[in-house]
């Protein structure tokens, strides 16, 4: 049995127990203005953050996009009708999604990342397979660093969750940055 032999070998070979360090979050960088920091970092990694006064502004954008005949995923009731088939939609159909509007739980100022729980994506593929991604995050849910982020979310609560920082990208050809590798070609984060 591999399991038993591997575990026995580890037990025999591991060093004597050393303690876990104490992670002192007070020793970590703080930002005067987490909103400004988040916006600046997100822009530097190819995304865009826009402060929004009310959801009506965004609602009209969603309606306008739908009116153009694009396949638009909307998961926020405040922005109009939500997609009912999204959870069970087949992959080939999802591949034609032009834009997805999803809510994010928190945003991280130091790296421009937004955390999404599975229930916020409805379908695990939706933030990845769409051509363009729009996330909505409440301004009060911006934290300074990843340390605070893990204090605020329960990353193991749902079957899947993700930090998304900017649009999909690659630099695999000669280190030339190209936006839009496999996932979304653009990312806009609305801060409300």
């Amino acid at each position: 049995m591999s399991r038993a032999s591997i575990l026995t070998a580890i037990t025999n070979n591991k060093p004597s127990l050393v303690d876990l360090p104490i992670i002192d979050i007070n020793a970590v960088i703080q930002y005067d203005d987490v909103v400004a920091q988040f916006k600046a970092v997100l822009e530097s990694i190819g995304g865009l953050a826009i402060e929004l006064n009310n959801m009506q502004e965004l609602e009209s954008e969603v309606q306008a996009e739908k009116a153009k005949g694009h396949y638009i995923i909307n998961t926020l009731p405040e922005l109009g009708e939500v997609d009912k088939d999204l959870a069970t939609q087949v992959v080939a159909t999802l591949e034609t999604v032009h834009k997805a509007y999803l809510r994010g739980a928190i945003a991280v100022a130091e790296n421009g990342a937004v955390w999404l729980y599975e229930h916020q994506m409805v379908n695990r593929l939706s933030p990845f397979i769409c051509q363009h991604l729009v996330l909505v995050v409440e301004k009060r849910n911006i934290v300074a660093t990843m340390h605070q982020a893990y204090q605020h979310i329960d990353a193991g609560k749902e079957g899947f969750g993700v930090f998304i920082a900017g649009p999909s990208k690659t630099a695999d050809i000669e280190q030339s940055l190209v936006i839009g590798a496999h996932g979304a070609r653009s990312l806009v984060v609305y801060l409300v």
Binding site: N111, G112, A113, M146, G156, V162, F163, A165
Partner: peptide, 8 residues
Amino acid sequence: PTTTYNSH
């Protein structure tokens, strides 16, 4: 500052 997707 981080990878684009940190999937849990």
